[in-house]
Nucleic acid binder design. Sequence first.
DNA 1: TTTACTTGGTTACTTTTAGTAACCGAAGGT
DNA 2: ACCTTCGGTTACTAAAAGTAACCAAGTAAA
Lengths: 137, 137
Amino acid sequence: MPVTTKEREKVAAVFSGACTQKKVCPVKDIMASYGDKWTMYTVLLLGQHQKMRFNELRCHISGISQRMLTVTLRSLEEDGIVLRTLYPEIPPRVEYQLTELGESLLKPLLQLAIWAEENVGEVLKARKKYGKKNKEE
Amino acid sequence: MPVTTKEREKVAAVFSGACTQKKVCPVKDIMASYGDKWTMYTVLLLGQHQKMRFNELRCHISGISQRMLTVTLRSLEEDGIVLRTLYPEIPPRVEYQLTELGESLLKPLLQLAIWAEENVGEVLKARKKYGKKNKEE
DNA sequence: TTTACTTGGTTACTTTTAGTAACCGAAGGT
DNA sequence: ACCTTCGGTTACTAAAAGTAACCAAGTAAA
């Protein structure tokens, strides 16, 4: 179904309230921060499991390196999305969980994840077609 | 308000349908593709204006370079999110608009944009607090 | 006693990606 | 003859991501 006029007005409202001639646009700022390879995925995982340890997360996010997981979690912690709890044991135990702010982010993120799951086929089909088109030229 | 059990189950469902032991996880794949500094913002802009020319987009996305706009638009075109129409005039005129697939992406992205606008204050507050905490140590 | 192993990182280095600035083509205007 | 326009491309540099080795400090086995 097509995008309604009402929805388009909503986009306009968000943009005008957020961006018009201001130096910092929150939408762009947030998109730039959470738009990277691992951040959203990490938040979704924490949303599913509630409390996760460092290596538990690492196992679930296949392909992520120790360093990138650290960097990603630190950034989320800095933004108040994730709470880090260190238990001073040996070997150390660290638990990560979403804050209230993080949980509020979970909802729109879940919508995006659902879109991704539903439309990944279409996207892959389009990519294939595009590749073919360019080879033919 | 907290995340409901139902919502958490939904996250689990999306993940289990998408990721369990599969080589490619669509959620991660899409998040990795559209998770960059400019892509989501560009889609939102095209969602608002419907048809936009290259330089028109460039003016609205302050800070983006010509090259990055080209790269971003090409990637979106490849994924079937954006339609590029070249009018063979001199000087050339190129119009970009969302495809049907792109418009379907607009809805979850808008939810995310609304979250960003509503919560940017909280995030900035958290960042400030985090910075202070680390200076004190 | 020495060795290996644990967790949750950090450090140094390499590779990939993003960003900057200059250039392009082809017509129109001065 | 030269500048402008639009929508790029090319060559180069800076920044970010990825890789691999290392660490502390205790526990467990050899």
